[in-house]
Computed example of a mutant assay.
Amino acid sequence: MTAITEHSVVTLHFTIKLKDGSIADSTHNMGKPAQFVIGDGNISDNFERHLIGMKAGETKAVELKAADAFGQPNPDNIQYMDRAKFVGEAQVEIGTIMAFSGPDGHEIPGIITEIAGDSVTVDFNHPLAGQDVIFDVEILSVE
């Protein structure tokens, strides 16, 4: 059986849990596993190091500190927008996650964290930034 090495194509299921045991995300909810190439930059180097050497059928719980998972919140990722820009869209409420067009044309999610008069504060940090997480991984295949 092939073990995971640099440049392996890995198909896996994962569940991301917070320290309190609540589930933040899971490929099981999406109905299909995730696939990526080791070393392609899609996941953190630290997380990749935990996967190296694993084989199809193996499972592991990987604890990651915030810095090695989704990073620390970056104050530069907090934007202030004119409330008028949201006219005709869904209700603008604190806690709403909306997709915005990034500078490169790709959509990026932002969460509305504050509304003050005509100013809407949008946080583009990953929702799990600043949190320690546990990845439960199940390796399905290694190519």
Rank of each mutant, 00 (worst) to 15 (best):
I115Y: 06
G21T: 11
M54T: 00
T2R: 14
A84T: 06
P73W: 04
I139V: 11
E58L: 03
E143V: 04
V10C: 12
F100Y: 13
M54N: 02
D25E: 11
Q72H: 05
K32T: 13
G105V: 03
E138S: 10
V122N: 04
Q131K: 14
K55G: 09
I78L: 15
I23N: 00
A66F: 03
T121D: 06
N74M: 01
N29T: 05
T59G: 09
G31V: 03
S141A: 08
E107M: 10
L12T: 03
I108E: 12
I112S: 03
H28L: 08
G39I: 06
S44P: 00
G117A: 06
L12D: 04
E63G: 15
K65Y: 11
I16F: 06
L51M: 08
N29E: 08
A84I: 13
R83Y: 07
V87Y: 10
Q72T: 10
A99F: 09
L64F: 00
I112K: 01
P33E: 12
N125L: 12
D118W: 00
I97D: 06
G88H: 12
T121Q: 15
K32S: 15
I4P: 07
A67C: 09
A116G: 09
L64M: 05
K17D: 01
F36I: 02
E114Y: 09
A3G: 08
G21A: 11
I134C: 04
E58Q: 14
D68R: 12
N42E: 14
H106D: 14
I134T: 14
A56Q: 04
A56N: 05
D68G: 13
N42W: 11
V137K: 06
